[in-house]
Amino acid sequence: MTRHIPLQGVENFRDYGDYAAGGGRMKRGLLFRAAHQADATDADLEAMGALGLVTVVDLRRAPERQREPSRRWTGFRAQVIDNDLGGEGDDPWLAFLRGWDHSEADLRGYMVESYRRKPFTPRHVDLFTRYFAALAQAKGPVLIHCAAGKDRTGLLAALTHHLAGVSRDDLVEDYLATNDPERYARIGERIGRYLASYTGSVPSEAAIRAALAVEAEYILASIEAIEAAHGSVDAYLETVLGVDAAARKAILAHVLA
């Protein structure tokens, strides 16, 4: 079964429900994840509009939203969750690219450290908290996205899977579904030019692939950092993101079939 929803101008759009979870199964057609929608075609907008989305969580920083504003479908009325926290400083990813030596090892080292920080960044805590509050309200389908739909989005999807009772193996499998060879074929050359605009030259094909990819060690770095700081992911969800017993019960009732 494929979870990817093929769109023309929106990358990495897929359903992150329909996993075995907590003795049951997550619903399909309720939870969606994607990259940005700035390049969405009219046909893409029609397809997204048909999903009945009631909440859109935009995990991007303010400058990212300004550079690539989201296109919306006719009659768009979904609640949009975003924020401008921490948007005044330099983007850590862009700062890294300016000094990147094009080696895969350097990139992976940055990514692991980045994932260790992500769960505790104030802007992420705010966005994640409001996302789970929206899920608890059980109004309908939700779309979460960032720029590429792989890192920030991947972490939030993983936290959702954990809360729902999805196995660690399936959680990681969903995260790794970003590594789509067809996606590289579509956008690899363009991403190479994008990277060169910061690094000064086009990286090797292997380095570009590494920049587009995710690795299990990345998402596990986030989980390990959460467990080191709070003892468990459940404790983090409750004490940091406000998912108390009542909210958890409401979310499970909403996302489980």
Results as ranks from 00 to 15, higher is better:
1 M>S: 15
2 T>I: 15
5 I>V: 15
9 G>S: 06
13 F>Y: 10
14 R>T: 11
15 D>F: 10
16 Y>L: 07
18 D>G: 09
18 D>M: 14
20 A>S: 14
21 A>S: 02
22 G>V: 09
22 G>A: 14
26 M>D: 03
27 K>H: 03
28 R>W: 07
29 G>M: 04
34 A>P: 02
37 Q>K: 03
40 A>H: 00
40 A>C: 05
41 T>D: 12
47 A>D: 12
54 V>D: 05
70 S>V: 01
72 R>L: 03
72 R>W: 10
73 W>H: 14
74 T>W: 15
76 F>T: 04
81 I>D: 00
83 N>H: 00
87 G>T: 07
94 L>K: 02
95 A>I: 08
96 F>W: 09
96 F>K: 10
97 L>A: 10
101 D>M: 10
102 H>P: 09
103 S>Y: 00
103 S>I: 11
104 E>F: 08
109 G>A: 09
110 Y>T: 04
112 V>M: 09
113 E>K: 13
113 E>P: 06
114 S>H: 05
114 S>F: 13
116 R>H: 11
118 K>G: 10
119 P>M: 08
126 D>C: 05
126 D>W: 02
129 T>P: 01
130 R>T: 00
131 Y>P: 04
134 A>C: 01
135 L>N: 00
139 K>Y: 07
142 V>P: 09
144 I>W: 02
149 G>P: 05
150 K>R: 09
150 K>D: 02
152 R>G: 03
153 T>W: 07
153 T>E: 07
154 G>C: 03
154 G>I: 01
155 L>Q: 05
156 L>Y: 06
157 A>N: 05
157 A>T: 11
160 T>K: 07
162 H>K: 08
165 G>P: 03
174 D>S: 10
174 D>Y: 11
177 A>Y: 15
180 D>C: 10
182 E>S: 15
194 Y>P: 04
194 Y>W: 15
196 A>Y: 11
197 S>V: 05
197 S>W: 08
204 S>C: 13
205 E>H: 08
206 A>C: 14
209 R>H: 12
215 E>D: 10
219 I>M: 08
221 A>S: 02
223 I>N: 13
225 A>K: 02
227 E>G: 12
229 A>L: 06
230 H>N: 09
235 A>Y: 15
236 Y>V: 04
237 L>S: 07
238 E>P: 12
240 V>P: 03
243 V>G: 08
247 A>C: 14
249 K>I: 13
255 V>E: 02
